[in-house]
Amino acid sequence: MIRYSLILVLSLCLISCGSAPSEAPTPVTPAPPEKAPDAVELNKPLNNTTCLEAVNTNQVQFTWTTVPSASSYEIKITNLKTNVTETKVAATSPALISLTAGETYAWAVVSKSSKTTLTATSPSWKFFFAGTGESSSAPNPAQLLSPLSGESVDALNGQIKLSWKATDADTPQESLSYEIYIGEDFAKVALNDVPKVKSTTNSISVPVQSGKIYYWMVKTMDSKSASYSSVNGFRVN
């Protein structure tokens, strides 16, 4: 009996000294996904205009609406004649940048953040920089008359007619010339990355295909400078 009691006591001790049940692992909360800073809104130089303002010599002031989510900005300026892009870094708006007078430029602002590698880019605007004391103004951006933006048109013998109106304060209309950019990709048309069609009149006929959407833009030129119209889109029935 004594032997049986001793065995029972030892058994209870072994059970009571066993390892404690393991705790469930603490769930790991995944890190929130990186978020790009917001894109800015451009202010000046205005889109499709002539810039006559120069702060010092040929320094142009670029302004945009800053966003709290960005810690710095990159201003990308493309000379549309040479297709060369310069990048300038700025902590905030405005920024003064030296340009060559008598040239047409496109510009955009990239928002950057120290918290992420993601970025956001504003829309691209275009302007002609006349410079200080420029006596000849750039032509007014052409007004696209037909087809209107969003219009559906019928082709005649596989072609449609593009027409526009352009004026220049110091150049007769008959002395103006044009380059027309048309294609199926909005961005490529806006950046002149499509074959151009030259014209000395304010209308041309171009080949199109039924069922497709096309975008077009007109560059108006006098002897010294140029301006760009907006980009219109239309559908071919």
Rank of each mutant, 00 (worst) to 15 (best):
residue 154 D to T: 15
residue 218 V to C: 03
residue 38 D to S: 12
residue 234 F to D: 05
residue 180 I to F: 09
residue 183 G to D: 02
residue 101 A to Q: 14
residue 5 S to F: 12
residue 232 N to T: 07
residue 100 T to G: 12
residue 54 A to C: 04
residue 155 A to F: 02
residue 66 T to K: 06
residue 183 G to F: 02
residue 47 N to C: 08
residue 218 V to R: 01
residue 53 E to S: 11
residue 10 L to I: 05
residue 173 Q to W: 03
residue 9 V to W: 07
residue 140 N to E: 14
residue 29 T to R: 13
residue 145 L to N: 15
residue 172 P to Y: 11
residue 177 S to Q: 07
residue 29 T to H: 12
residue 202 N to E: 13
residue 110 V to M: 03
residue 126 K to M: 10
residue 222 D to Y: 06
residue 136 S to I: 14
residue 148 L to M: 12
residue 173 Q to K: 13
residue 80 L to F: 09
residue 209 Q to W: 02
residue 175 S to L: 15
residue 180 I to H: 05
residue 180 I to T: 06
residue 236 V to H: 01
residue 91 A to L: 07
residue 158 G to I: 03
residue 193 D to R: 08
residue 100 T to M: 10
residue 222 D to I: 00
residue 66 T to I: 10
residue 161 K to P: 12
residue 51 C to W: 07
residue 95 A to L: 07
residue 32 P to L: 06
residue 210 S to I: 06
residue 5 S to W: 06
residue 105 Y to Q: 06
residue 40 V to H: 00
residue 140 N to K: 08
residue 150 G to W: 03
residue 80 L to Q: 14
residue 115 K to F: 14
residue 85 T to G: 07
residue 157 N to T: 15
residue 176 L to H: 04
residue 183 G to S: 05
residue 213 I to Y: 05
residue 182 I to K: 03
residue 56 N to V: 11
residue 150 G to Y: 11
residue 229 S to H: 05
residue 191 L to P: 00
residue 66 T to L: 00
residue 219 K to E: 14
residue 47 N to S: 11
residue 144 L to N: 01
residue 111 S to Y: 03
residue 235 R to A: 08
residue 122 S to F: 01
residue 90 A to N: 05
residue 159 Q to W: 05
residue 29 T to G: 06
residue 19 S to Q: 15
residue 71 S to G: 13
residue 221 M to F: 10
residue 235 R to K: 14
residue 123 P to H: 10
residue 161 K to H: 06
residue 108 A to P: 00
residue 14 L to R: 03
residue 212 K to D: 11
residue 19 S to L: 12
residue 58 N to V: 03
residue 129 F to W: 06
residue 95 A to Y: 00
residue 181 Y to K: 05
residue 138 A to N: 02
residue 122 S to H: 07
residue 131 G to F: 15
residue 50 T to Y: 02
residue 215 Y to R: 05
residue 172 P to A: 04
residue 195 P to M: 13
residue 121 T to V: 15
residue 130 A to S: 12
residue 116 T to N: 08
residue 186 F to I: 12
residue 36 A to H: 03
residue 116 T to D: 09
residue 8 L to V: 15
residue 172 P to S: 09
residue 105 Y to H: 06
residue 62 F to K: 00
residue 235 R to I: 10
residue 67 V to D: 04
residue 24 A to N: 13
residue 233 G to T: 09
residue 99 L to V: 07
residue 85 T to E: 12
residue 204 I to E: 11
residue 189 V to K: 01
residue 145 L to Q: 13
residue 65 T to A: 02
residue 107 W to Q: 00
residue 10 L to A: 09
residue 105 Y to W: 09
residue 136 S to K: 10
residue 4 Y to I: 14
